[in-house]
Computed example of a mutant assay.
Amino acid sequence: MTETTGTWLTQEAYDRLQAEYDDLVNVGRAAIAKEIDERRQEGDLKENGGYHAARDEQAKMEARIEELRRKLANAHVGEVQFDGTIAAGTVVTASVMGREMRFLVGSREIAEGTDLDVFSAQSPLGAALIGLKAGETTSYQAPNGKEIAVEVISAEPFGG
C-alpha cells in the first residue's frame, strides 16, 4: 500500500465495517423496502410525508452501503509495521502553528471509541507528515492558502 491510497484498517475496524455492510445489505434494504411499500399503500404519494421520509432514508442507506463497499474493497488490513516513520496508522504529537496536537493519521473508522482527532493521509496535514520522524519539521498549505508550520514531537503506532 502506498500511504496515500486505500484505507488502512485494523482487523477490528474492518470486521465492524463488514458487519455494518452485511446488516444494511441483508436486513436494512428489506426493512426499508417494506416501509416504502407500507407508506405507498397509504394513498396519495404527493402528500404522503411518511413515504417521502422512507425514500429519503433509503437514499441515505444506499449511499452508506456504497461508501462501505468502496472502503472495504480498498482496505489494507493489518498491523502497522512501525519504524518511527509516520504512515497511515500512526499517532502523532505535533506542534501545529505553535499549538500542540495529538492525532491519528489514518481513518476515522479505526479511531472509533477513542478521543483522538483523525487526519487522513490524503488531507493536507496528513500528506505533509507522511514519511517524517520525530524532531522533523514541515509545512502545508491550508485551504485558505496560508502556509502552516508543523514540528513532529513524537510518533507511535496506533494501539487501538
Rank of each mutant, 00 (worst) to 15 (best):
R55Y: 14
A13R: 02
A75E: 07
I32M: 07
T137V: 11
E147D: 08
G78Y: 07
L104T: 03
D56R: 13
E147K: 07
K146M: 15
V96M: 10
L45H: 13
A128I: 12
K46R: 15
Q58G: 03
I110Y: 03
P143W: 10
R69V: 03
I153F: 02
V92T: 10
N144P: 05
I32T: 11
I148R: 03
E79V: 12
L68K: 04
I130W: 08
A127W: 09
A134R: 11
K34H: 15
T93A: 14
L24H: 09
E35N: 12
D117L: 14
G106L: 01
M97W: 05
R55Q: 15
A30P: 00
E109T: 08
T138Y: 05
L129R: 01
N48P: 12
E151G: 08
A149F: 05
G131T: 08
D22I: 00
V91C: 07
L9E: 00
M101N: 14
E42W: 05
G126K: 01
A88L: 02
V150I: 07
S123C: 05
Q58D: 12
R40C: 03
L72S: 05
L68D: 06
E62T: 07
I110T: 08
G49P: 04
E100M: 06
D44G: 15
A94G: 05
H76T: 00
E147Q: 12
G126I: 09
G49D: 00
D22K: 07
Q81R: 14
E151I: 02
K146C: 11
F158N: 00
E112S: 12
K46M: 03
A121N: 04
D115S: 12
I65T: 01
F82Q: 11
N48H: 13
L17W: 02
E156R: 15
P124C: 04
A149W: 07
S123M: 14
T93Y: 12
Y51A: 06
V150Q: 00
G43N: 13
F103K: 09
N74P: 06
M61L: 04
G135S: 15
T93V: 15
A128D: 14
T85H: 13
M97A: 15
F158V: 05
I110K: 06
F82D: 07
D23H: 09
L45K: 09
F103N: 00
V77S: 01
R108F: 05
E156W: 15
V152N: 09
L24D: 04
Q122L: 03
R39Q: 14
I36V: 08
S139H: 06
Q122P: 02
A73K: 10
Q141F: 14
R70L: 07
R29S: 07
T93N: 09
E47L: 03
G113D: 13
G106Y: 01
M97E: 06
R99T: 10
H52P: 00
G145W: 08
E112W: 09
G98M: 09
T4R: 10
